[in-house]
Structures are given as structure tokens and as C-alpha cells.
Write a protein that binds this DNA or RNA. Structure first.
Lengths: 207, 207
DNA sequence: GGCCGCCTCACCCCGGGGGGTGATATTGCT
DNA sequence: AGCAATATCACCCCCCGGGGTGAGGCGGCC
């Protein structure tokens, strides 16, 4: 567990410093201060942080909300708005970017820290939920007959849509071997076809 | 789109009233004021709100964090902590309940409103993402060749693991008809097998 | 009326998927 | 050493899934 690295996007250098001091007080590392959207984008690609703190008003060009959309589309990082804009129109625009938090200036240290902690944790959880790949082992907890490690790997492949040939090529084993494993997987999942197996995996993983 | 109904869980009646006044100012409806965990649970089952505003310190018995776990397990409603507790230990406990927000007292109206708006919107989005079943029509927005209504129905069936016979039986049409439709679906999805189609649907729906 | 998209159905072909059976090597546990 | 589980491979059969082609009915649109 490394130190949390925060990118601060705030056009006013004095406020940015103020925020940075606050964050370092509570044990975060400030990866950079970006005073413009372009600087922010550069930082995001060269020195990606764990979370982004975004002002909405950034002077010229792109504003914080457009920047937030970029972060969603390109980087998938969590971000929190920290702004004095709290009018309805702005909020309506901002919420569509699905920020992990929204702090209104003037901010206080406790409130900022709380929001960031929640944001980081929720984002981590969300990532774990959507990237439920390695959770395939989790399947074994809800199955009467447990799948062997090899079978789990193959099941991932099946889940991704691969056919037997592709699986054989990927694992450098014979086609017959794949067939044997697949048969065993079907028996343990109590299904009779790939689509059924996929559906079963889906339900077992989601509930 | 009805008025947002908020349940306030706060042991101090004066503060509760204060919060209620704030919320009504910004156009929310207060479904109830709960001054104890038991009152809160009762309200949740009898008169469920759209979102819950939770204090952590509730005097005797269950505290706000335990209450939050109950809300997660039994009701699946979004909630926001509104508390003066901002120490690390409490925050660590609280974040595991995955609150949609965390506001530190003393609160200000704008901050509370912003947080609630974000919380409601994100929760709605999350719900939509997990319950992405009938959103199959949504596929057409990201496909070069659009699927016809019939094809969408069949694709649902395929997604659930049904084979051609089952589909034919379910839709009271000939097996050959099903085959024709399925061929067309595959062409439009640019895939060559059921598992591939399912994988494609999964990625298209999730991103 | 003519065109087009959708739904319906038919026939052929074949390759891969899925079921059955059996075998061997390796590992680890007892 | 003996046993069980795992991973590997082989051969059989059969049927369903998927590709190609063609065609008729039906509703909306120009």
C-alpha cells in the first residue's frame, strides 16, 4: 500500500498551494499542481496520480467538467470536484461525469480528507467489482464441485468467447486435452453448452 | 421524476430540524426524522425514502455505521454520512459501508446539496449499470448495423444461454426462422459464434 | 403501385461442440 | 508404497450450430 498520490487541478496558485498543504498534512502525496487543463492532461499521461482533485473554473479553454470527461474516457481515474461553483446548472452538468465527490469552497481539511478517503475506497471497490476477473476463484465458494486451477483458466477463456482451438493454442496443449477439461467444467457447473456455462458464471458472480 | 425524499437520522432534534429546513430549502422532501436507530429502521421498512442522511453518533445501541450496513444489506438505498466524527478510525470503519458521500459538521447548505445530488445520480447510474437487462436496446446506439426488435429479443435469449430449439419453442416459430435470425444477429455483431456474441454484448453493455 | 425492411420458412453442407470411454504421467497426501 | 486428484492425450459418434442461398408474406413509405 503506497502513499496516495493526488493531482490538484486549480488555476489559482495560492489556493492550489493551500490545498496541497492540507493534503500533505493528512498524509497524502501531491503528484503535481496543474494550473491549466493542458497541464493537467500532460500530468495525467506522464505522471498518473491515484486520484484527481478538480476545480471547475479553470479560466480559458476546457473547464473542469470537460476535463472530468476526459479522465473518465481515457484514464478511468477517480476524481473529486473542489469548487466554489455550487449552482444548480453547474451541478447538473457536473454530476453527469459521475464524480466520486463534490466539495464546495471554502473547504475544510476534515471534509476534504473524508471525501477523498471515501472516493478512493469506493473507486477501488467499483474497480474490483467490474474487473471481476480474478474473482473467478470466487466461483468455487458457491459450487458443490470445485473447479481446478486449470479449469478456472479455461473457463475464463470460454467466458471471453474463445473456442477450443483458440484455447488449445493459447495453453500449448492438445485439442483433445481442452475438450476433456471443458467436459469436466460443464459437469461441475451442471450445464451442457458454452452459452449456458457463461450464463451460469454470470449469475454466480453477480449474486 | 418525483420529488426526492430524504430520511434524516440524527439523534439531536434541533440539528435534525436544522437539516430538514435546509433540505426543504433546496427542494427536497423530508420523509421523516429518525432520532434513533430503531426509528430509522422502522421508517426504512414502512416509508422508504430515496436516500438516507446518517449521523454516526446516535447515542445508545446501534450507531450510524451499523445502520449503514443494514441499509446496504436489506434496502440497497444510497446514504450519506453527515457527522462531526472525522477522525481516521471512524472514517476507516465508515468507508467500508461504501457511503455515497461524507459530509462533516458543521455543514453548509451548498455542500450538502451538492453531495446529495451527486449521491443520487451516481446511485441511479450504478443501479442502471447492474440491472442492465432491458437496456439491450441500448446496444443499437453503439452498433454500426442496428438490430431489429425481434433480433434483440433473440439476443437476450442467447445471452441467457438458450439454444436454437428453446428459442424456437419460446417464440412459437420454426427452427429455421431462429437460425436465420441468429445468422443476421451474428453478422451485425460481427461475430461467428454464440460465446463470442455474448462476450461482445457484455463489453458493449459495460462500457 | 412499387420499393424496402422485417419476419417467416426451407434445404443443403460441414465443421466444431459435446458425450462416452479409456489411458498415462505427475503431484501430493497418507 | 499406495491412493487420489490433476493434467495430459486419444479415438469414437452424433448432433447442433453456423454459413450459404433462396423465397414468400406483410407492413410502411415514397
Amino acid at each position: 500500500m503506497h502513499v496516495v498520490r493526488v493531482l490538484i487541478v486549480e488555476d489559482d496558485p495560492i489556493i492550489a498551494q493551500d490545498i496541497a498543504a492540507c493534503l500533505e498534512d493528512v498524509g497524502y502525496e501531491v503528484s503535481a499542481l496543474a494550473h491549466s487543463p493542458t497541464a493537467a492532461l500532460k500530468e495525467l499521461s506522464l505522471n498518473p496520480p491515484d486520484i484527481v482533485l478538480l476545480d471547475i473554473n479553470l479560466g480559458m479553454g476546457m473547464d473542469g467538467i470537460q476535463l472530468a470527461e476526459e479522465i473518465n474516457n481515457k484514464y478511468g481515474l477517480p476524481f473529486v470536484f473542489l469548487t466554489s461553483y455550487a449552482d444548480r446548472a453547474t451541478l447538473q452538468r457536473a454530476k453527469h461525469t459521475q464524480p466520486m465527490g463534490y466539495v464546495v469552497k471554502p473547504f475544510d481539511e476534515k471534509g476534504l480528507y473524508s471525501t477523498l478517503e471515501i472516493a478512493l475506497f469506493n473507486h477501488a471497490k467499483r474497480q474490483a467489482a467490474t474487473h471481476a476477473f480474478q474473482d473467478f476463484e470466487h466461483l468455487n465458494t458457491r459450487l458443490p464441485a470445485k473447479l481446478t486451477p486449470r479449469e478456472l483458466e479455461l473457463l475464463k477463456g470460454i467466458y471471453e468467447g474463445m473456442d477450443n482451438q483458440q484455447l488449445a493454442g493459447m495453453f500449448f496443449v492438445s485439442l483433445n486435452t481442452i475438450k476433456t477439461h471443458v467436459k469436466s467444467i460443464f459437469a461441475k457447473l451442471d450445464v451442457a453448452s458454452r452459452p449456458q456455462a457463461i450464463a451460469k458464471v454470470r449469475t454466480l458472480l453477480s449474486e
